[in-house]
Design a protein around this nucleic acid. Sequence first.
DNA 1: TATTGTTATACTCTATAACTATA
DNA 2: TATAGTTATAGAGTATAACAATA
Lengths: 161, 161
Amino acid sequence: MSASTPARTEDLGLVDGLVQTSMLVQAVFADAAAAHDLSPLQARLLGVLRDREPTMADVRRLLDLDKSSTTGLVDRAERRGLVRRAASPCDGRSFQVLLTDDGRRIAQDFVAAVGEQLTTLAEDLGERDRNRLSALLSSVVRRHAAAHDIDLGAGIDRRRT
Amino acid sequence: MSASTPARTEDLGLVDGLVQTSMLVQAVFADAAAAHDLSPLQARLLGVLRDREPTMADVRRLLDLDKSSTTGLVDRAERRGLVRRAASPCDGRSFQVLLTDDGRRIAQDFVAAVGEQLTTLAEDLGERDRNRLSALLSSVVRRHAAAHDIDLGAGIDRRRT
DNA sequence: TATTGTTATACTCTATAACTATA
DNA sequence: TATAGTTATAGAGTATAACAATA
């Protein structure tokens, strides 16, 4: 191992490290969503809509949901004034899903809150290890996305990297 | 940065790396659960029961659920023969939740499957980077657990680290 | 005929409030 | 009175199957 060993504690192993970290991030995500009166899934929807105007089918692919789950999700979000459906100009069967002004404001607040919380979470690592972790996670995610033809989109804060 | 730079791709930034990795791990977790005909939450329940015999209140704390959600979760799992309630010897109001033989078998299968999938996911990193990632994630999780007095338990595969 | 999206149905998850029983 | 757990209720998420409308 290299000069600065990051762990002052017993290593959990990679699998458990991934699972536990994932649960932790999900908890942060869910708390931030709840603080904005959103369900986790609604928060994800708002997140992906920040830089896209996808059709229902696109939303379905982006969030890996069933067709009917997508209908329900967008219905509830629309009822709450967070998004709206707009008829597609090129396909009479299709709708685009768009953020309302309210939805956009909430989406940006939420994303900022998650960013803050996660930044705090990794604060103690120190800059060198934070950069290493960031690079390693990016590598894992990018490889997987490339192998499975997945659109990573803008994520939470890619634009300010 | 040191000799072997792990990322051959654009860095997502730490926040997005954490979120995207978390979503990825959750997807692996959910798929493995579905393959064992479990909901993600039921899979988590079975996971924590592998090395514990918690009361309902303990389950609630371990999974961060409401009292009534815990009742429902254990009801459904009991109906499916995965767990059972046993009267607490020391408190007449309390039950311990235990895996059935079926539940234990499924829990072990599930945990093994998740481990395999996640190992595959990180395979391309190479051993050196895998160890680094493991150490960094452990550090984040351990710090957080210590700061918030959280019981990490056996997780997915801590015993074989 | 194939695709886009909705509806009907059924089950799981989640939380709040009111409740029972024991400590 | 306080705690452990359940029940009632309501809303959100999930998937399957059947359906309508458009391509």
